[in-house]
Each structure stands twice: as structure tokens, then as C-alpha cells.
Write a protein that binds this DNA or RNA. Structure first.
Lengths: 245, 245
DNA sequence: AGGGGCAGGTAACAACGTGTAACGAACCGC
DNA sequence: GCGGTTCGTTACACGTTGTTACCTGCCCCT
């Protein structure tokens, strides 16, 4: 397969340079990035197979970026940190990192991890370049993630709002797994600037779910796709198939 | 008790073969399965006591399968993974796995875990026998465990609450066997960890039984499906047939 | 047979979770 | 700006579930 393209995100120029150099010697295409905007630029520019993300970026926590990227796009992420403490590890995984490695790391180990994550990603989607260009099918519905279009079983196109789309994506990524309102809120918080709503627990999720139901459920009053798990949250309870296009 | 029947689910033929061989040498009946459809076939075929499920299946994440199986059926599951990272363990538990073990594992340890999970399952199955069947019929009624729908003899769908459904399941799994209130409470305590309710014995069960009777008995005042065993508890006293679908 | 105690049935209630209509603010394309 | 859309908030309705209280009927004891 193609040479993997890696994005090295670290705010320390020395560390960044060192990693990029080592990775390039190891036969990969390594691109440096110092902050979030550079990451986004690279992602927009072209395909990126994997992101190596430092946990401690000066201005903004790498964890936040990770969570954000995870929900916007489907790029595999390996978190890198100077802290090997378990809670850090947990945090990394919680925001959706595919793996975690502590600095200073054994170069061989890093390569091994990268290979593992890449092969995993590749296995789950034969598509190497953009895992974001996918078509999901569930219960007769078709969702084209690339065009952001959703077709009903009758072939009629249905208009979903941005937020509704994000919600659907979150569920498509986790079929049959109950998601709590907190998890859903985290998944929806892709805009990132909303730091305030950390605790602001309103009924927004419920209403949003209701609206999505109104659009994709045959009988919204008796949902069979987006079921309520009372006292827990919501479950996307039909099978999902994902294809590359 | 009978020789345990295990289902080994791993997409790597070598690993699968190895595990099956080892488990067979260890006195169990081990069946190999490479993907979800093979799992379902085995479950439909006959009784399976426990599933050893690899986290990383090529086509579909083992976690999803686990969540799905847990959602629809009640087979104990041990997740197996090449990744010993804690987050994997967490994910496994979150989707309802009974235990988690990392590859490469100590064979003795695996056996111990299997034994532990099985004995746990069996203990609780003295109360609620774990089945893999999906459709139950009794006295004209049909209960589709997969869709959580219950149809009256007239073909009318009846809405059962979550708790009522759980209660019905407990009885369907134990027809003609009187269940004490403690046993019923234990069966309903999906969370299982509530040690507090040992003494907190209210009338909740009675009320719940009454409500279920109100929905499934022709004449709730003179129940002939869900009979009271005075001084003992309640008995589901009609025959139940269970089918796979 | 009569009476007391007790197990169980159930109506009423309260606490809580969820669905949803309505409202208004923010945003967007023109 | 202006109309339309999106989206969070709010208020209210409703379903679920445990608790309580009261009633009934059964069983046992004398």
C-alpha cells in the first residue's frame, strides 16, 4: 500500500523536528504541525493517515483537539505525552485516541504502534486515504458522509441540520452501544469553542434526538432505530454497514 | 454439570485454531467462528455457554458484536484482545462483556477466567437460565426478545415497560419453577451489584407482578399464567416454547 | 366455628425520566 | 435589513416505578 502520511503535532519545535526526522528516515511521510490550526490545514489539504498528537500543547490541551478531531473526522490518533501516569492514559483513550505512548519512547516501539494502528484502521476500512468518505446504510437508509446527504428507504432525500447530522454520525459510529447524554454532548461539541457547556446539562440532547427521530423514524412516536435506554441515554439499535466510495 | 460449550471468535485462523485446540485439550467443547454470521449460526444451532470474542475482527469491531449480542441475547462473553491497554478493557466492559483478557494470555489464566464466568452465569442462571433464543410462545402469546415486542393471542401488540419485560423474561426462562421475591429481585437487578437491597424488601415485586398480570392475564383477578405460590413467591405456570429466528 | 394474624392485591401517590410544542435568539443567504 | 432555518430553553404532559395504606381472603389456633 501507499506510504503512510503522518501528522506530528507538538508545540515543542525540537521534539517535533526530532520526531519528523526519525519518522521520515523510517520510510513514512511525516508532516509537522505546531497547533490546531496547522492540523486542520493539513487535514483540509490532503489525506492524512494518522496523527501523532502531543497531550500537552501550550495553549490548548491536546486532549481537546483529539476529541474534536475524532468526532469531525475519522483519522486514527496516537497520543504522545511526557506523562505516563495512568489517568493521563485514560484521558487519552476516553477522547478517542487509538493508542497512547509516553515520552521518552523507544523509536521501535513507536513504529510498531503506528503500524498496528494503521493496519487496524485499514482493516476496518479498505480505504486508505479518506476514512471520512464513507457511505453508511441502515434499515434502508443511506447516508453519504462525503456529500452529507441522507436518502430515505424510498430514495427521497431528507434534509438534516448540521447538528442532526453530527448526532447521526455519532450513533453510526457506535451502533448497538448505548450512549449517555454526556457522551453525546461530547461528540457534538465539535466546534470546540463551547467551553462553557461542560456542566450545562439541559434538555438539548433530548430535543435534538426527538428532531432526528422525526426525520428518520417511520413512526417517531415508537422509534425502532434510535431507541431510548431509560436512565442511560440512547441507542442506535439497527445494524450499520459502512462502505467506501 | 455438562461440558461447557465455548465459541471462539477470532478472524485470525492461526490464533483461532490454537485457542480451539487448547480449549479442547482442556476438556471443553470449543467451536471456531471467524465472523459474526458464524457466531449467529452457532447460536441458532444450539446451546453455547460462553463466547470468547476477539476485540479486533476485521470487518466489524468485536465491541459492536458484543454490544449487539448483549442487546439481543444473554450469552456470557469474554473479550480477548491483543491490546492490554486499560481503555480496551473499559470498552469491553461498557458493551457488556463479562470479563476481559489480553493476548498473549496464560492458558491457565484463561481457563480460570472461563470457569469464573461460567460459574457466575450458572449461579444466576439457577434463577434466570441464559438462553440464546429469541422468540417465546406461551398460551397464545408471542414474545419477540429481539424487538422487545409482545403480541397477544389476538395478535395485538401490548406495551410492556422495561421492568415488566425483565420480569416476564425471568419467568419465561423458568417456567413452572416457583421464584421467590428475592430471586426475582436479583433477576431484575441488572446491575447486580446492589448489595443493599438484601434487606430493603418492599412490595415492589408484588406491585410489578400485579401490573404484568394486568397486561397479560385474561382475567387478572384470577391469574392462570402468573400464579401466586403463597408463602413462596410466584410461578409461571404455563408451558413455554422457545425458538430461534 | 370464630378470631387473629398474616400474606398478598391494588389503588393512590410521589418522584423521576422522557417527549414535545412553543418560544425566542442567533445565524445565514439574499 | 428580511425571511427562513437552526437550535437551545422552557414548560407541560405523560409514562414508569417504588412506596404506602388499606382491604381481602387464607390459614392456623383454640
Amino acid at each position: 500500500m501507499a506510504i503512510p502520511r503522518l501528522l506530528v503535532v507538538d508545540d515543542d519545535p525540537d521534539m517535533r523536528q526530532m520526531m519528523v526526522q526519525f519518522l521520515r528516515q523510517s520510510g513514512t511521510i511525516a508532516l509537522p504541525a505546531a497547533n490546531e490550526s496547522e492540523v486542520l490545514k493539513h487535514l483540509a489539504d490532503g489525506r492524512v493517515d494518522l496523527i501523532l498528537l502531543d497531550v500537552m500543547l501550550g495553549d490548548e490541551s491536546g486532549l481537546n483537539i483529539c476529541a474534536k478531531l475524532r468526532h469531525e473526522q475519522d483519522v486514527p490518533i496516537i497520543m504522545v505525552s511526557a506523562l505516563s501516569a495512568d489517568h493521563q492514559r485514560m484521558s487519552g483513550y476516553e477522547v478517542g485516541a487509538d493508542d497512547y505512548i509516553a515520552k521518552p519512547f523507544n523509536p521501535e516501539l513507536l513504529l510498531a504502534r503506528i503500524k498496528a494502528v494503521l493496519s487496524r484502521a485499514r482493516r476496518s476500512s479498505s480505504l486508505v486515504h479518506r476514512r471520512t468518505t464513507k457511505t453508511f446504510r441502515f434499515d434502508g437508509w443511506t447516508y453519504d458522509a462525503k456529500r452529507d446527504e441522507i436518502l430515505s428507504p424510498d430514495g427521497v432525500q431528507v434534509a438534516l441540520s448540521k447538528r442532526e447530522t453530527a448526532l447521526l454520525k455519532a450513533f453510526l459510529a457506535n451502533p448497538h452501544i448505548p450512549l449517555t447524554r454526556e457522551e453525546i454532548a461530547a461528540a457534538l461539541d465539535v466546534t470546540g469553542d463551547n467551553a462553557h457547556n461542560a456542566d450545562a446539562e439541559g434538555r438539548a440532547i433530548d430535543v435534538l434526538v426527538g428532531r432526528l427521530r422525526g426525520k428518520i423514524e417511520r413512526n417517531p412516536k415508537d422509534p425502532h432505530i434510535l431507541r431510548t435506554e431509560r436512565g442511560v441515554g440512547y441507542v442506535f439499535s439497527v445494524d450499520v454497514t459502512a462502505e467506501d466510495t
